[in-house]
């Protein structure tokens, strides 16, 4: 069973990251904390490459912000294209949910 669920989670991770970044500008430890409470718990080794991909697709952008402790941090937020993509994904997710709950009953 787990082997069938893992690819689903993997595919949805990008969607979840967009949702988390969509709320407000966040930095990576924020994203990891939000995910850590869920079955989507993720490590930096996975998240940084994903964020770089999203940035290359111009769905997210980041800016450096000074920190009280330690070096400046990268804060990520959605671009306009990212917001549009997130809205489309939300929409699709709702349709998918309806389909799944209606079918087979």
């Amino acid at each position: 069973m787990e082997s069938k669920l893992a690819p689903i989670r993997k595919g949805l991770l990008e969607f979840l990251v967009l949702r988390i970044v969509g709320g407000r500008s966040v930095y990576v430890p924020d994203i990891l904390r939000r995910l850590a409470e869920t079955e989507f718990a993720t490590q930096e080794g996975t998240l940084y490459p994903l964020l770089s991909k999203l940035r290359r697709e111009e769905l997210v952008q980041y800016e450096w912000q000074e920190s009280d402790v330690g070096p400046p941090r990268k804060y990520y937020r959605l671009t306009e294209a990212g917001k549009a993509q997130l809205a489309a994904l939300d929409d699709y997710w709702n349709r998918l949910n309806r389909t799944i709950s209606e079918i087979g009953h």
Binding site: E14, E44, G45
Partner: peptide, 10 residues
């Protein structure tokens, strides 16, 4: 260990 090995998305 906490950072984990690098995984390319998709």
């Amino acid at each position: 260990d906490e950072i984990g090995s690098v995984q390319l998305p998709g």
